[in-house]
Amino acid sequence: MTWKRVCSAGDIEPGRLAPFVVDGITVIVANLGDDGFSVFPPSCPHMEEPLDQSGICAGLILTCSKHLHQWNMRTGEPTGPEENDRELLRYESRVEGGELLARIDGELVYEHEDDEDDDFEW
């Protein structure tokens, strides 16, 4: 159980997200304003879109612009489209002395099965 420094709390403006690499593991940090921070893996739980480019923050809600799937960044719960039943995985995080720390013992990864019924997109 290791708390590791991710960035300074002032590195990201409220309502924004940005990628950081911590001991070789890439994470996305979202500044939720009064609700603190959320730290999560860099790929979309739905179809692995890179969230540093496709992720849009609005309050507590993360939207991936590829298919407009949405998650609550505090709880990880999917919201919005019904077909989205994947949770947003998160690293536990806290702010201490102006620094954002996250408990990163290993990389959180999504299992994307090859035979799942993915959306068919042109």
């Binding site: 309502g15 849009i56 923050c57 609005a58 939207t63 612009s65 590829k66 407009l68 799937h69 949405q70 919005g80 489209p81 997109e121 042109w122």
Partner: peptide, 24 residues
């Protein structure tokens, strides 16, 4: 398209179900 989606979601606060586009 990306800029419009960001505006509609982050500023206009439209629900995702009210935004329609086809990504090519």
């Amino acid at each position: 398209v990306d800029g419009a989606l960001r505006m509609l979601i982050a500023e206009a606060r439209l629900p995702a179900s009210d935004i329609r586009y086809d990504k090519f």
